[in-house]
């Protein structure tokens, strides 16, 4: 049964990723402008500054040649079929504008994005659940009010603004943390790496912690007032047993279903965070490629991002069925 379910979901996921790649492939070719004509224009500009310059027909000829070389002169469905065939064989292609091999580039950048994302994921869960549980257990006290107030703030302040404020306080005023850049701890100085992790992770987690602690607080409160918990208290069980065995176990159920959305949020958030902090990850690659309209890079990264989101959702659904026996998949 379980194996069946997983296989069906995997097949669904494959179709989903295909559909997404089709949407992106078409959309990106509808963007006005063309990465190659920008290249040719830049070359023309360089030649003119050097006192020379191509005549327009020659420039057009070069442009046509380039388009043919990258297969951009073919109808979109055929381009898509070619691209898909290459993707399936593991050939991500080359960047049109900058010429690098996309698979190598993503392989170099992906660990950074995954590393930061994983830390953000763990931090969000730990703090979100911790503060949510505390606020619920101490319902109506100062602690509860403070947690709820900060949570409202967390849902109100956009990530990029949080980044600017943190940069101002921690980098400029206090001079504690580096402003830009990031490297993995095993690829350089560990101290520098840890210090440059702090701000991006804070920005990536603040909103998530706020949302999660709110959700956690309300679902815990629901459970705390449930009949079986009152019974547990009435039986004279110790506080620890009641809270951990009865309240936490049931109250954290909705938190599991939140994980999928949270992972999508972290993946999407990496785009903005990496751009602000100049982190050489996949997120900043997307933004660079978008400004240069580097078709194959955007396609490859979107497919990767979608794949990660879809797989994360699958794992979450499986976990949910495992945690909550009432929702065994039929």
């Amino acid at each position: 049964m379980m194996v069946n379910f997983i296989i069906r979901r995997l097949i669904n996921s494959v179709f989903l990723v295909l559909l997404v790649s089709m949407i992106v492939f078409t959309l990106i070719r509808m963007v006005p402008g063309d990465p190659l004509s920008a290249l040719v224009d830049a070359e023309q500009q360089r030649l003119i500054e050097g006192g020379g310059g191509m005549d327009p027909e020659q420039a057009q000829q070069i442009l046509d040649d380039l388009r043919a070389q990258h297969g951009l002169d073919l109808p979109i469905p055929i381009q898509y079929a070619q691209w898909l065939g290459n993707m399936i064989q593991g050939n991500f292609g080359r960047s049109i504008v900058r010429g690098f091999d996309i698979a190598t580039e993503i392989g170099r950048r992906m660990p950074i994005t995954l590393y930061l994302g994983l830390i953000a994921f763990i931090v969000t869960n730990i703090f979100g659940i911790f503060w949510g549980v505390i606020a619920a257990v101490r319902n109506g006290t100062v602690v509860d009010n403070v947690v709820s107030g900060v949570a409202i703030l967390g849902m109100t302040v956009p990530g990029f603004l949080m980044a600017v404020v943190l940069m101002y306080i921690l980098s400029f005023t206090m001079e504690w943390l580096p402003l830009h850049g990031f490297n993995l701890p095993w690829r350089g100085d560990i101290g520098v790496s840890v210090r440059s992790t702090v701000m991006p992770v804070m920005v990536m987690t603040f909103g998530g912690i706020a949302g999660m602690s709110r959700q956690c607080r309300s679902s815990m409160l629901e459970v705390i007032n449930a009949d079986y918990v009152r019974t547990a208290w009435a039986k004279g069980m110790r506080e620890k047993v009641v809270i951990f065995k009865h309240v936490l176990k049931n109250g954290l159920m909705p938190i599991v279903s939140m994980q999928g959305g949270m992972i999508a949020g972290i993946v999407g958030g990496s785009v903005i965070v990496e751009t602000i902090f100049n982190v050489p990850g996949v997120g900043s690659l997307v933004v660079d490629s978008m400004t240069q309209l580097d078709y194959p890079v955007i396609q490859a990264v979107t497919v990767m991002f979608t794949f990660i989101t879809v797989m994360a959702n699958l794992v979450v659904d499986l976990l949910y069925g495992w945690v909550d026996p009432r929702i065994r998949h039929s």
């Binding site: 989903l16 990723v17 559909l19 997404v20 949407i23 992106v24 999508a264 993946v267 999407g268 785009v271 903005i272 997307v286 955007i298 979107t302 991002f305 979608t306 989101t309 879809v310 959702n313």
Partner: peptide
């Protein structure tokens, strides 16, 4: 499908 693409992209 629409939900699976990161909204920002």
């Amino acid at each position: 499908a629409w939900i699976s693409i990161p909204a920002i992209i």
